[in-house]
Design a binder for these strands. Structure first.
Length: 789
DNA sequence: AGCTGTGGCAGGGAGG
DNA sequence: CCTCCCTGCCAC
């Protein structure tokens, strides 16, 4: 096993590490038949740029000068945690007492670098990792879910609503145990104590829940506090330690009240689900019930209870409510089985504990791997450099309209491959760990994938799949790490080198396709949609053989793969298109076609129009438009159809302040949330609709919560929604001659609508780069000359 | 304390 | 009308 990747101490099976007090550390190791704990033997430390900063510090400490020429050249170690905190306080007082405003956080000191998470630092320094050599199935995982009694409906679950009480705690584990502890048998205080007893008796390694961090755990802890119950479910009898954290998922950040407990790991499947969706982008919601349906493990007889009906069920049908809670824990277990194994296997490599790994961002994972090796080799560590990346992926569009017989090729792992073949690494990374890790991870991933394909046993296959996807998580983060402003080992110039090289590869491929009489439709970063030369178009074997032909333009180590073949493609704009498969399935991509913030009627309308276009059914376009127009006019749509659902990314305070400073304008979604008097937190979603009678009303002055809509007195703004429909129809303007477009998308039925003679335009857009079209060449891909604006 | 990147489109509001 | 700017959402 590679020690750089897996750490030292390769035999030891550590189950968990826990910080017990400020100064104590417990390590829980597993023996053959039981779980034992032992004290840890290690020294807390931080890095300094200059050892003289600590001159005059009286407490016991050791200073080690590190090799290399990076910024942090000294490692200062201390006998206990308390002594390290004391030294940090000394540094702040001594070197910043005159600075105004006074520095309150050591994170702001450029000459000090300290990882203050004791567990993380222990793993980092000791070179140990968790669950070494274990299979996921060997984990003892327990699922938990609570139901609360509110007496009346509630919209946002709120752990601080102390007047609500817990009526059901459902528990299950992967060893056949399941039990509902509920308020028909216990008063709440006794109920909570029974939960503590049960968890300690079962003694699971992992506690799992869906949104357990932001709901179940804070709620339980709050109620325990009220009753004076010590929720001491830790292996050493300790209780939960909670702390606010922010987790970033692509472009949105989620605030989470994380919690840890001694000797166990907490896994929140709600977070895992969002991490999963960052790359997949297929989920409509992050709810447990939706996910269970989506992944296909919802039981046939599963009980569904709407959130606001829970109290009613408790009063009238308690057994059903209990079954509902048990169904929840069952689905939580299944969801975790699906999503958490890659993180479990990562915990055997990365010096973070399982629970922390499932919450951490990808840059943090890479950094701990680098840092562990730097500490082991006693090498100095660089400080982050600031900068802005100047380039990204290459995106372009060459043809709009409908193209028949389309091939999609993509460069496999474009950025990692470039980094490996060109040896791109941070210049400050002086001992070659970055490239070593990336190369080894890539090789191991390929091995795991190969082994998976050869494996017949489904259980082993699943394990290998989890293993290869844990490698993938890391591999894909190396490029992002380079450009991350707060990374110790960042290097913005090298990040630009990666993207520029990627752009060059793509342009070469585009040229290669064009010179062989193929027609490129759209390009995005590492993938190309094109129409193959007419001599091979639509013939599977020939199209497959075409791929290696153009791949010859790429350097050694950069591989091109056939990603898909399609019966037709509707190319709309950059990053916006729809595909019709040979199985007649349609998939749509792009914010202007599939955005979740589009009203439901709009999404449906766009999807139906695209279906009609791809199947060249012009008559259907017209009838879709006409029927929807009259449905709106006659109030035949319900609020679910025309409400808009948007995410509130800012809290109420941040929104108000932002308005105050004139940095943003009033927005309907926020105004509706404010007017309702509900409190919300960033990430909550709100549904609203537009009222009034004028199509040009200001949204923020004429909006109402979706739930306020009354079907007997529909007050939605008919003119506004009809205008919306027209705007949506405008998306399809580019596909028709102006007079045809007007005929299709209009209510004018002076003459009956006839699709005869209407053609769908396919337009080659004016381009200067990369390859100028030869005017003498026949434009084989053109179906209509079109008016190119 | 904890938070990978760039590129592109839509829609709304403010102001010319 | 139009342009600018901001936010939200999405592709990769």
């Amino acid at each position: 096993m590679d020690p750089v990747l897996f750490g030292a101490n390769t035999q030891e099976r550590i189950v968990a590490v826990h910080q017990q007090q400020e100064s104590a550390m417990r390590v829980y190791s597993r023996t053959a038949d039981s779980v034992i704990w032992e004290d840890a033997d290690f020294y807390p430390f931080f890095f300094l740029t200059d050892a003289s900063l600590l001159a005059g510090y009286r407490g016991k400490h050791w200073v080690k000068e590190l090799s290399g020429s990076n910024a942090f050249r000294y490692l200062c170690a201390f006998p206990r945690w308390n002594e390290m905190w004391e030294a940090i306080r000394f540094l702040i007082d001594r070197h910043n007492q005159t600075a105004a405003p006074k520095i309150e956080s050591y994170a702001e000191l450029p000459w000090l670098h300290v990882r203050t998470d004791p567990v993380g630092q222990f793993l980092l320094q000791s070179g140990r990792t968790l669950f070494k050599g274990m299979a996921f199935e060997e984990l003892h995982r327990m699922q938990l879910d609570i139901e609360t009694y509110t007496g009346h409906g509630h919209r946002f679950s709120n752990a601080n609503r102390v007047e609500d009480r817990i009526i059901v705690v459902a528990l299950s584990d992967n060893r056949g145990f399941s039990r509902a502890i509920h308020g028909r048998e216990f008063a709440e205080k006794e109920l909570l104590e029974e939960v503590v007893r049960t968890i300690r008796e079962r003694d699971p390694d992992v506690i799992e829940g869906h949104n357990i961090f932001n709901f179940d755990l804070p709620y339980i802890l709050k109620r325990c506090e009220l009753h004076g119950v010590d929720f001491a479910v830790g292996r050493d009898g300790s209780t939960f330690r909670s702390f606010e954290t922010r987790t970033a998922f692509a472009d949105r950040a989620v605030d989470v009240t994380s919690a840890e407990v001694g000797g166990r790991h907490v896994i929140d499947t709600w977070l895992l689900l969002q991490a999963y969706d960052v790359s997949k982008r297929t989920l409509e919601s992050y709810g447990l019930k939706y996910a269970a349906q989506h992944f296909g493990f919802a039981r046939q007889d599963r009980i569904y209870v709407a959130g606001e009906k829970i109290s009613w069920y408790w009063d009238n049908e308690p057994d059903l409510l209990i079954r509902y809670a048990m169904d929840d824990v069952y689905e939580t277990g299944k969801l975790s089985e699906l999503l958490s194994p890659p993180y479990f296997y990562l915990s055997q490599m990365v010096p973070m504990n399982f629970g922390a790994l499932a919450r951490a961002g990808s840059a943090a994972k890479i950094e701990t791997l680098l840092l562990r090796e730097y500490v082991r080799q006693k090498q100095s560590v660089p400080s982050p450099s600031r900068g802005l990346q100047t380039t990204g992926g290459y995106t372009d569009i060459f043809i709009t309209g409908i193209v028949e017989h389309v091939v999609d090729v993509d460069v496999e792992s474009l950025y990692p491959s470039i980094m490996i073949t060109d040896g791109i690494a941070p210049r400050t990374e002086s001992i070659g760990v970055f490239t070593h890790l990336l190369t080894r991870l890539t090789a191991m991933r390929l091995d795991a994938k190969r082994a998976m394909k050869a494996e017949a046993d489904p259980a082993n296959r699943a394990k290998l799949d989890a293993l290869q996807s844990s490698f993938k998580i890391l591999i894909n983060s190396f490029y992002g790490y380079l450009g991350y402003n707060r990374a110790l080992f960042n290097d913005i110039e090298q990040a630009d080198r990666v993207t520029m090289t990627g752009q060059a590869h793509l342009r070469r491929l585009i040229e290669a396709i064009g010179s062989r009489r193929g027609a490129v439709i759209q390009v995005d970063t590492d993938g190309i949609f094109f129409s193959p030369p007419d001599t091979i178009r639509g013939v599977e074997e020939k199209e497959e053989a075409f791929v290696p032909l153009i791949a010859r333009e790429l350097p050694e180590g950069i591989r091109l793969a056939l990603n898909g073949r399609y019966k037709a493609m509707l190319s709309y704009k950059k990053k916006n298109y729809a595909l019709l498969g040979y199985d007649n399935k349609i998939s749509m991509k792009g914010s202007s076609l599939t955005s979740r913030s589009l009203e439901k009627f709009g999404r449906h309308f766009v999807a139906q129009c695209i279906d009609a276009l791809l199947n060249r059914n012009i008559a259907a376009l017209h009838s879709l438009f006409v029927s929807l127009w009259t449905d709106i006019a006659e109030h035949r749509l319900t609020v679910a159809d025309f409400a808009r659902t948007e995410t509130l990314r800012e809290g109420s305070l941040a929104y108000a302040e932002s308005l105050e400073r004139g940095e943003r304008n009033k927005t309907a979604s926020y105004e509706v949330a404010l007017a309702s008097g509900l409190s919300w937190k960033p990430g909550d979603r709100v549904s609203y609709y537009i009222t009034g009678s004028d199509a040009s009303v200001k949204g923020f002055e004429n909006c109402k919560l979706a739930e306020e809509w009354d079907p007997t007195l529909p007050d939605e703004n008919v003119a506004f929604y009809q205008k919306r429909l027209q705007e949506l129809a405008k998306k399809f303007e580019v596909f028709f001659q102006p007079q045809d477009f007007r005929a299709i998308f209009s209510m004018d039925d002076l003459f009956p609508f006839s699709p005869d003679g209407i053609e769908i335009l396919t337009v080659r857009l004016e381009r200067t780069a990369p390859a100028e079209p030869d005017p003498d060449e026949p434009r084989i891909w053109l179906e209509e000359p079109g008016d190119d604006e």
